Amino acid sequence: MKRKLSIKVLACAMAAALLFAGCGSTDKASSSVADQSWEKVKEAGVLVLGLDDSFPPMGYRDDNNEIVGYDIDLAKEVASRLGVELKLQPINWDSKEQELNTGNIDCVWNGFTMTDDLKKNLLFSDAYMNNQQVLVVMADSKYNSEADLAGKSVALQSDSSAKVALDSKTDFKASLKEVIELDNYTTCLMDLEKGGVDAVVMDEIVARYFIQMKGSKYKVIGNSLAAEEYGIGFRKADVALKTKINDTLKEMAKDGTNAKISDKWFGKDISTIGK
């Protein structure tokens, strides 16, 4: 009986060992599955770009309701070189991470500021442009500095890097009467013109564009609230897709395409990737 029991126990032990070994092999195989993010885009033949379509000059609707902009021109060239169609998908900026994680879009490419918090959940390309957060007021206003806005109202785009920048300036923020969060910068500036707020915290790239378009209707005051960089956001696991687009942008920098597109929108080359 003892011998038979020992054999039975040994057999069970071996079976268990094989079972666990099999599970280990499966886990190892699953964890080593190749990143198919680029292959999926290539097979579909479409790169779906998520954007806020009211963020000039990076991406916005022109008088013909067509989505145009600096980022759009860059993305079109990248898609062309990769042999895929570019699909522009307007999204709610507050839901950009959700849009990515549910697979509705392949990337967020629209003057997207890379912050430490965002980098915890998203994968970013190399920075392709520098930017800073600034204060914008009406050109004929009496405000010329942060101190002048004590007790006043300030607007900014919700879930934006402007909010992050303002939150970091605790003393200045505490001096304000109120901070109003709106859907986009166009709405913020409309509220500024109507007198609903006294200033807007926004990207300098966008502010300078509006100043140019509006004939100095607005002015930038004070110092930069925060320096930042624009990048393209991807799902954390989509390294292959990020690398493909990143490398293409570097090629475009090398052959002068990025400089040409930048000159079209800004009158000079302010691109940074590949330099």
Rank of each mutant, 00 (worst) to 15 (best):
M1F: 08
K2M: 12
R3I: 11
L5Y: 05
S6L: 14
S6A: 15
I7L: 11
V9I: 15
V9H: 10
A11S: 13
C12K: 05
C12E: 11
A13F: 13
L18T: 05
F20S: 09
F20G: 02
S31W: 02
D35W: 01
Q36R: 11
Q36D: 13
G45H: 05
G45T: 07
L47I: 10
V48G: 00
L49E: 13
L51C: 09
F55A: 07
R61Y: 07
R61V: 06
D62V: 03
D63Y: 06
D63P: 01
N65Y: 13
I67R: 10
I67C: 07
Y70N: 14
Y70Q: 13
D71C: 14
L74R: 12
A75E: 07
A79G: 08
A79H: 06
S80C: 02
L82K: 15
V84M: 11
K87S: 13
L88C: 06
L88F: 05
L88E: 12
Q89E: 15
P90N: 12
W93C: 05
S95V: 02
E99M: 14
T102Y: 10
T102F: 07
N104E: 15
C107K: 11
V108F: 12
T113E: 15
D117H: 03
D117T: 10
K119M: 12
K120I: 02
L122N: 03
L122M: 12
F124S: 04
S125F: 00
A127T: 09
Y128A: 03
A139N: 15
S141M: 11
S141Q: 14
E146K: 13
A147V: 13
A147M: 12
D148F: 11
G151M: 09
A155F: 07
Q157P: 02
S158L: 04
K163T: 03
V164H: 00
D167K: 07
D167Q: 08
F172C: 03
L176D: 09
V179R: 01
D183A: 08
N184E: 04
N184M: 01
T186W: 00
T186R: 08
T187F: 02
T187A: 12
C188R: 05
C188Y: 03
M190A: 13
D191I: 01
G195S: 03
G196L: 10
V200H: 06
V201A: 14
M202L: 08
E204L: 08
R208V: 05
M213Y: 04
K214Y: 14
V220A: 11
L225H: 06
G231P: 00
G231S: 14
G231T: 00
R235E: 07
R235N: 14
A237G: 04
A237T: 05
A237S: 13
L241V: 04
L241F: 02
K242N: 12
T243W: 00
T243G: 00
I245T: 01
N246P: 01
D247Q: 09
T248Q: 14
A253Q: 14
K254V: 02
K254S: 15
D255C: 07
G256C: 05
T257F: 04
N258R: 07
A259K: 15
I261Q: 10
G267S: 12
D269P: 06
S271L: 05
S271G: 13
K275V: 12
K275L: 09
